[in-house]
Design a protein around this nucleic acid. Structure first.
Length: 545
DNA sequence: CTGACTTGCGCC
DNA sequence: AAAGGGCGCAAGTCAG
């Protein structure tokens, strides 16, 4: 497989191949890539977000790339890497390189810091670091998956998630009333605000101000310290129903109301940016429109095009299954043989009820030590010794300030300022009796983070492999441009949406399952753990699950 | 006025 | 019923 490193030099692009360097004007790049792509090329560039959108806009899709920014971030933290091999004058530049999104580019046409970096030499350092690693194979898989994630993310932004403004607006009008002029509350919110003020005898109350609401609740004699919905729901008072209703609808208005539509939906597509590796654990982040927390409430507006369908797939209980596999815990893997892992634990006699199983497993992965989930731990530790030992060891390592890693070698951050130095920095006077307790509290909190890191991060690796393999399978199902074939339009930790012509939907569903099985093999070889999917072929996202 | 922080809540 | 881990976002609040 030929490797071609692309380098921007002003308006000229240099393409460094194995035997030659081509220089071409930037606008000829799409043609250049299109021509060479069929022969099989791994394109190497500083950062997918700086190159790929322009190629996609010209209808050019690439099969493989190396994203040096993403790879650099992984290698710099990996305990599998000898950091000396990565060191260079430009290391801080690569460390601080940020992905670009269209809005930023348009608003801040500043000189790009990427232009001061040299991709060919960075590639050499990265290759040397991987080659010298005792865990070369794992790192290679992680880097390939991460780069592929960069391609998927750019393609999802390019295609956008089909979104029906008319459906969304009907939904808003039904719940809130007609769209009000700027600066005014929708009629239904205004009515609820009036009911809240009346119930609290507070005519000037601003229900959007938590502090204001808290004062009014306390003045009415209610014993509350915050205004969270759950807190309010515990109270017996006439203000509770209208206030809860107000908060729910106000949330819809501010998070996914008319201005959200104005900002994020264009030409029938919700377009946000997905940022692979945006979370320290390796999960994706997003920017623009809160793409990773699209409420169930508005999902009816995500509707496939005429003659098209969504294939919606999610993995049941991804993280516990990953924990079973990465720890090699055969007893837990046996419970995971059931489509419902928690039910499998009940069948095996480990716990009495599904609710207990869920509580115990979540507690083990998140570090819940109190209440029922804490009481469950001894039983889980007896039954699933390897799985529980893995998370316990990760927690202890974190408490000692050590780095932990995922299966493929993504390293956790060092605790840094998070626990010891911070109180002084904040001017928080260390109380003689409290400071030790505070330190212990911080240590335990970091232990909960590292405990979760190993599982969440390895689950993110599984999901990346799933996505990468699925991307290739989808491409093979169709012809023409990306958006004419079945293509990914959404990804959320353990769930994907594929937009596909209706006649290919069943094939897509099958490929989604095959890709999941392949991801399991890639990460865990022959270890007997299943990753069962819920797959639905639907017109609207709301019909799934 | 801007920017940083807090609060609360949506998603996994 | 959450809790316990990870996020993004909007509005209010407050310091400079």
């Amino acid at each position: 497989m030929e490797r071609i490193v692309l380098v921007r030099r002003g308006d000229v692009v240099e393409a460094h191949g194995a035997s030659a360097v081509h220089r071409l004007p930037a606008e000829r790049l799409p043609g250049f890539v299109r021509e060479r792509e069929p022969a099989g090329v791994r394109w190497v560039w500083d950062d997918t977000t700086r190159w790929y959108p322009a190629l996609l806009a010209e209808g050019v899709r690439v099969a493989r790339c190396t994203d040096l920014r993403l790879a650099h971030a992984v290698l710099r933290r990996s305990p599998f890497v000898d950091q000396r091999l990565l060191a260079a004058a430009s290391t801080p530049g690569w460390d601080s390189l940020q992905p670009v999104t269209e809005t930023e580019a348009a608003l801040f046409p500043l000189e790009d810091p990427a232009d001061r970096l040299d991709p060919p030499t960075e590639l050499e350092r990265q290759q040397a670091a991987v080659a010298a690693s005792p865990e070369r194979r794992r790192l290679e898989l992680l880097l390939a998956a991460e780069s592929s994630g960069g391609l998927v993310a750019a393609e999802m932004t390019h295609a956008g998630l089909p979104w029906r403004v008319d459906v969304h607006e009907r939904l808003l009008t039904g719940l809130l009333g007609p769209r009000p002029p700027a600066g005014h509350r929708p009629a239904i919110l205004e009515r609820l605000a009036g009911e809240v003020r009346a119930a609290l005898a507070a005519p000037a109350l601003n229900p959007d101000s938590p502090a204001d609401v808290l004062r009014a609740l306390q003045a009415a004699g209610l014993p509350v310290e915050d205004t969270r919905s759950w807190t309010l729901a515990q109270l017996e008072h006439p203000v509770v129903p209208p206030l809860l209703e107000y908060k729910k609808l106000a949330r819809l208005l501010t998070a996914n109301g008319w201005s959200w539509l104005d900002s994020w939906v264009r030409e029938g597509r919700f377009r946000s940016w997905f940022l692979p590796g945006g979370v320290v654990t390796g999960r994706w982040a997003s920017t623009g429109g809160g793409a990773l927390s699209v409420p169930v409430q508005v999902r009816p507006a995500a509707v496939a095009d005429e003659g098209w369908r969504f294939v919606v797939a999610d993995v049941a209980q991804l993280e516990p299954r990953v924990l079973a596999a990465m720890s090699g815990d055969l007893a837990m893997a046996e419970a995971a043989r059931a489509a419902d892992l928690y039910q499998g634990m009940v069948s095996a006699g480990t716990v009495a009820t599904r609710a207990e199983a869920k509580l115990g497993i979540l507690g083990a992965m998140y570090g819940g030590t109190r209440g029922e989930s804490g009481r469950m731990m001894p039983r889980l530790a007896r039954r699933y010794p390897q799985a529980i030992a893995l998370v316990e060891e990760a927690a202890r390592a974190g408490e000692r300030g050590e780095v932990v890693r995922t299966l493929l070698g993504r390293g956790s951050p060092v605790p840094g300022g998070a626990w010891a130095e911070r109180p002084a920095d904040l001017g928080d006077p260390p109380e003689p009796t409290g400071s030790r307790q505070e330190q212990d509290r911080r240590r335990r909190a970091w232990g909960r983070f590292t405990r979760n890191f190993v599982v969440q991060g390895t689950a993110a690796e599984w999901a990346l492999c799933w996505l990468a393999d699925l991307r290739n399978r989808l491409w093979a199902l169709g012809e023409g441009r990306l958006e004419d074939r079945p293509h990914l339009v959404f990804f959320l930790h353990d769930e994907v949406l594929v937009h596909t012509p209706e006649h290919l939907a069943e094939q897509v569903a099958e490929e989604v399952r095959r890709a999941a099985a392949e991801a399991g093999r890639l990460l865990f070889g022959g270890f007997p753990v299943d990753f069962p999917l819920d797959v639905a072929v639907v017109r609207s996202w709301a019909e799934a699950g």
